[in-house]
């Protein structure tokens, strides 16, 4: 027994000989010691999904004025998710902001990552700092700072709070995360592969498009996904810079005083399902490709 479980803390007591069966309590303890991490992991995953389950369940709540306690089952909210004024408009705004911010942040961030990894230049560590500090700054500070400049500074040049300012802000806070993600991918790329392309008559641009870009594309796609989810779910900064414009998180927050309408639960849960399907789909496709290589 001792030989089979060398890492259990109690193995010194197992010297009683192989003929003797260990007690049931001891076996249970050993089993627990071996499976502690797995059991804990499963419990943590359940914990992570608990609020999602609540969100799902309360999308069927036949609530009257306030959707806080369970009152009965209905399909009604799933049949007409836009039934509450403002909810679908805010969703559309969030999707638009998310797409624009993601595209711009991904392009700008990828360019920055290329510069940071591929070149040594003066001001490199200052740029590094400029990329890092936004990630270490609490959102509320960024939101407050943006509010002061939009209200006191940029309003003089005709910028007022609304859709545009939300997009400006979202691009800003997504940028650093894009840079870091793409940078990691670029750093793991063997520089010899790009040199081989140059050696085989590809100029700098051809090298980029035929070799570098396809190889860092998974990193760029990951960065874009990250940017979209950061943008789509942002509330704190949006709350400062949105003026009268409403995004989906802002709609939900404002509504939460009286209990969030079940239509919002429907939308929130649907977004969750769509995102999970996308991620799982991408996984399946890539593992299918991998297994095709093996055969």
């Amino acid at each position: 027994m001792a030989a089979m479980t060398p890492t259990t803390p109690t193995s010194s007591t197992a010297a009683s000989g192989p003929a003797q069966r260990p007690s049931a309590a001891r076996r249970a303890r050993l089993w627990l010691a071996n499976h502690f991490a797995v059991i804990a992991a499963i419990l943590v995953l359940l914990y992570l999904f608990l609020p999602v389950a609540y969100t799902f369940a309360f999308s069927f709540n036949d609530h009257g004025r306030s959707n806080i306690v369970w009152q009965g089952f209905t399909w009604e909210h799933w049949q007409d998710p836009c039934g509450v004024p403002g909810v679908c408009e805010s969703l559309v705004t969030s999707l638009q902001v998310g797409v624009i911010s993601t595209v711009v942040a991904t392009v700008l961030g990828t360019l920055m990552a290329l510069a940071m990894v591929r070149y040594r230049f003066r001001g490199r560590s200052a740029s590094n700092l400029l990329i890092f500090v936004p990630m270490a700054t609490p959102e509320i500070v960024m939101g407050a700072a943006l509010l002061t400049i939009f209200v006191q500074g940029f309003s003089n040049i005709g910028i007022s709070l609304g859709f545009g300012t939300i997009v400006f802000a979202h691009i800003m806070f997504c940028l650093s995360f894009v840079v870091v993600t793409v940078k990691a991918r670029l750093q793991s790329l063997d520089p010899r592969i790009e040199e081989a392309a140059q050696d085989l008559y590809a100029g700098p641009l051809q090298t980029f498009w035929s070799v570098t870009f396809p190889l860092i594309l998974p990193g760029i796609a990951g960065a874009a996904m990250l940017a979209f989810s950061l943008s789509f779910d942002d509330f704190i900064i949006t709350n400062f810079v949105s003026g009268n414009e409403s995004t989906f998180p802002k709609f939900v927050y404002v509504a939460s005083r009286r209990g969030i309408p079940a239509e919002a639960n429907v939308i929130g849960f649907s977004m969750f399902v769509i995102a999970v399907l996308l991620v799982v789909g991408a996984q399946v496709v890539s593992s299918m490709r991998a297994s095709r290589y093996k055969s």
């Binding site: 010899r192 592969i193 085989l200 070799v211």
Partner: peptide, 12 residues
């Protein structure tokens, strides 16, 4: 043209 030490084939 070069045959690289680690071959450096284009993986994609």
């Amino acid at each position: 043209n070069t045959v690289f030490q680690s071959y450096a084939l284009f993986p994609h």
